[in-house]
Computed example of a mutant assay.
Amino acid sequence: MKAYYADEQKRHDPKAFLSSGAPQPNPEQPERAVRLLAGAIAAGCTIERPADLGLAPMAAVHTPEYLEFLQNIHARWRRIPDASEEVIPNIHPLARNGAYPASAVGQAGYHMADTACPISAETWRSVCWSAWSAAAAADAVMAGDRVAYALCRPPGHHAFADVAGGFCFVNNSAVAAQRLRRRADRVAILDVDLHHGNGTQGIFYARPDVLTVSIHADPVRFYPFFWGHADERGEGPGLGYNLNLPLPRKTADEGFLAALEAGLRRIRAFAPDALVVALGLDAFEGDPFGGLSVTTEGFSRIAAAIAGLGLPSVIVQEGGYLCDELSDNLTAFLTGWSG
């Protein structure tokens, strides 16, 4: 299996975020990329560097207003007297259908859902290489590979078309899906991260050409709280093209696999030409977020079940945070897929 990754992805190094109002070290650390890379190599992946593909892959799913913001906000922010080193919002609009603010502070609140995705001078560069890794993996699959892995860091599935959030800036899974749409009439996205892929859902919510399925910890008491509930089915032309399968906290392998089978049935009914797997390893029983209880062996079984669809597939890395087993969990998933 080919794996796409660029070392520039480690340059984004966020320092903190607020958890229940208290500053905490940001868990989306560059070390994640180091351990994930080791896991991909242990699985026998051939590591390839993506090409610089410019803005086009990102502009296919994000607004130009938002991409301009991401490129320029840090330099603008640092011109504010006594501003923080990283861009962190301190005000948010109650509604987003009114005037667009001219100030850096106002735009940060408009385009950033929470405090978990601070922007430094290096963030944009890392974000680009992360997105280009997803696009390169999609291109490989369109060129004939049955499966490719994109080691995307920072992750992406909480990013909407014009909003960052939850450690995410550009939605890499959406980038891959839209890239696949150049050859595939219908694409399914299956998100197996601990957290609901709210940004991915939002980008495709009114579209019938991309089916979105997410298996995640029940958001009634878990991030992202406001999205990911079972009654969210899509809207307009997309009604019936979104499926959420929320799970009780601490659900382990068998419960996760049962939900996965329901998701796979929906994907088969959609009859897609290609698949994107938004791979979160934070459903692991020992992940710092502690939401679900999937085992290392469970990831192997999850991968084998998804691979059974027999679809050309792009595996896009989402969550999975620093614990001793992070590398092993990725290796288990990738070998489970090909084994």
Rank of each mutant, 00 (worst) to 15 (best):
A259T: 12
S338P: 00
D218W: 08
E232Y: 06
H216W: 06
S300M: 03
T123K: 01
G156N: 05
G263M: 02
E235F: 11
L275M: 05
V163D: 00
A38Y: 07
A174K: 04
A40C: 13
Q107S: 06
R79V: 11
S214A: 09
P30M: 11
S103G: 13
A60V: 07
A230L: 03
S338Q: 13
S19L: 15
G238R: 05
R11P: 06
L264C: 11
G156F: 02
D324F: 00
S293E: 05
D231N: 08
R49N: 13
T331S: 13
H229P: 02
L264Y: 02
F222N: 15
G298S: 06
N172C: 12
A134R: 04
R11Y: 09
W124R: 11
G280F: 07
C128P: 01
D218V: 12
I80S: 09
D162V: 10
P288Y: 03
P93S: 05
G310K: 14
C152L: 05
G298T: 07
I80W: 04
R301A: 08
D13L: 07
W337I: 05
F69G: 08
G228K: 12
T63I: 08
P64L: 09
E285A: 14
V170D: 02
I315E: 07
P23T: 12
L53T: 02
V314Q: 08
C128M: 15
T212A: 09
R301I: 03
D253A: 12
F256Y: 15
A83T: 08
H229I: 09
P224Q: 11
A135R: 03
F333S: 09
P154S: 10
A184V: 06
P154L: 09
A304V: 06
G290R: 06
W124P: 06
A159G: 07
L70C: 05
A174Q: 04
E28G: 07
P14M: 14
L281I: 06
H74D: 11
A188W: 01
N242I: 00
L309S: 05
P25T: 03
W77A: 05
G336T: 04
R96Y: 12
E261P: 01
G263P: 00
R35D: 10
H216L: 10
P224C: 10
G310A: 09
P219V: 06
